[in-house]
Design a protein around this nucleic acid. Structure first.
Lengths: 310, 310
DNA sequence: CTGAAAGCGCTTACAG
DNA sequence: CTGAAAGCGCTTACAG
């Protein structure tokens, strides 16, 4: 019965018996009992995706949900989980015993890794024992800088988010922006921090103007919106007085006045890649490498323009 | 051993034995096996919260995560799940066998209820058998309309989102807006639909101007931002020529120029309420009623002002 | 108060 | 090819 219902490979069962089992199962409305299966087989067939504790780009969320279709097809449940650093709660991997735990950001803290190991999780992605694991390239800042440079800007700034939850990612993008400036032979970008408090964007703006900055690359669209808002409150013209380029292509970017130039990330590709990573780990196969199409792309709109003549 | 480790009530066990069990468990690094427990007890100790297929207010998400702390304390795993209507995937409740499935929006489709019943879910919240279940009051539109009326506006519009995923909620808010207009003795609000395409907001704007509308209540902040952007592109002054009030108090609302008047929802209170609902259902207790503090509140900023004199 | 044991619903060798 | 059975790690009556 088990062999028929699970279509177990390498079994010899007559067509007739097979049909009899299937018919009876249907007649009785048979539904497998997940817990019993997990107990007997030692595998929960659960993949747990750990999301970061900050507002994940909504389109990535949607594409992760699409990814869950792929895993469902393969018989796995794809569960997402937000790790809250303040949380006293036991992480979900302790109680669910997933076969795979995967970090969507591509990194775990050392505390998380210790906890995952203590819980006996069979597969951790990225594998902490494999230091050469591929990281997301974060090409956005290079695209931003190249765009600004091509418009003639020479003195540019990089506006960070002050949100401490994303300090890691902010630092990565800032480093990429600095690297890009060097390659493009621009002055090292002035780094400024912007919080959601409007006064914060205004003081960042004032600092930029004092330093003769003509264009700014923002960590994300929220920061970019804050800077555009501050500039408008100062009666400046965007992009004539200051060019602003965001990152993420959030819905607000196409809506704002002026419409925001930004970087669009291929979240569909990323979602598929994450599904492939999860599946390979679940089956114990080697991790696929990131497809080249998973690329960021610059979307030029109205918030960036030529550098002012001097 | 089981009685000691589970602190089972109504058992008589000597302190000495208790200590011996606890010490040994610690020494061996004992960890309960979730699947075995679920199989033997018939309860999975999982609460599954079903989220809507649209961008949930981030602050509500955070508060739901806080809610999971409460449930964790009580020994439950709180798992969130986004139901995608297009999904071919089996819903998570079929494979996880949760003790409780709870809809964060307060409603299930009839297909979902059928599926939940077929899967034998012991507790469904809101209970489909109890038609009197309390609904979220959705007072935002009343607050918006009252605010606009108090500023002297008499001809107002309600701007919907064109996103079909939220058609239900949009319809509810529109009905509330119409009800509020009647109470306030305003003309029935002109209803307009706005999509994320900027041209859409512009034609909605033109229609409003043709009809002599002086103020608009938006379904949410995204729609409000689109309308403000369109107005600025038309060289109109907000709020002098048109007052715009949003809904949700999204981060962008405080950042935009002009800063957006909007409705703030007590997501922390909602999160706590949902946790209480889940817990009461898990324990088979009666559902608590919604606390009166779970109120929406109007945040008046710069995008609304007095109606133009005529 | 304590220990021995049946049973939850599966998976999977094993005997025929 | 098919059937009978051990065992996964718990919970929970039951006997002592």
């Amino acid at each position: 019965m088990g062999f028929v219902l699970n279509e177990t490979a390498g079994q010899t069962i007559s067509e007739q018996t097979k049909k009899r089992v299937l018919d009876e199962a249907r007649r009785l409305g048979y539904r497998p009992h997940t817990a019993a299966r997990a107990l007997a087989s030692g595998r929960s067939r659960i993949v747990l995706a750990v999301l970061p504790d900050w507002p994940l780009d909504f389109s990535l969320r949607r594409h992760l949900e699409e990814a869950s279709l792929v895993l469902d097809e393969a018989g796995y449940s794809f569960i997402t989980y937000t790790a809250h650093p303040t949380g006293q709660a036991r992480p979900l991997w302790e109680t669910l015993a997933p076969d795979v735990v995967l970090s969507v950001t591509g990194r775990f803290t050392s505390e998380q890794i210790a906890s995952l190991r203590a819980a006996g999780i069979p597969a951790i992605v990225p594998n902490p024992d494999d230091l050469g694991a591929e990281e997301y390239p974060e090409e956005g800042p290079l695209l931003q800088m190249t765009h600004l440079e091509s418009l003639g800007h020479r003195r540019v700034a990089f506006a960070e988010s002050a949100d401490s939850r994303i300090a890691d990612l902010v630092a990565t993008r800032r480093a990429r922006a600095e690297g890009a400036a060097k390659v493009l032979q621009l002055a090292p970008p002035l780094t400024l921090s912007v919080s959601l408090d409007p006064g914060s964007a205004e003081s960042a703006l004032d600092e930029m103007l004092r330093r003769g900055i003509t264009a700014v690359a923002a960590y994300n669209d929220d920061v970019a919106v804050a800077l555009v808002g501050a500039a408008l409150r100062r009666r400046l013209d965007v992009p004539q007085d200051l060019s602003v380029v965001g990152h993420d292509d959030a819905p607000v970017a196409a809506i704002l006045e002026p419409q925001l130039s930004t970087v669009r990330v291929d979240t569909a590709g990323l979602g598929r890649y994450i599904a492939a990573l999860a599946l390979s780990a679940a089956e114990g196969a080697a991790a696929p490498s990131m497809p080249p199409e998973t690329r960021a792309e610059l979307v030029a709109r109205a918030s960036t323009g030529p550098a002012p003549k001097r």
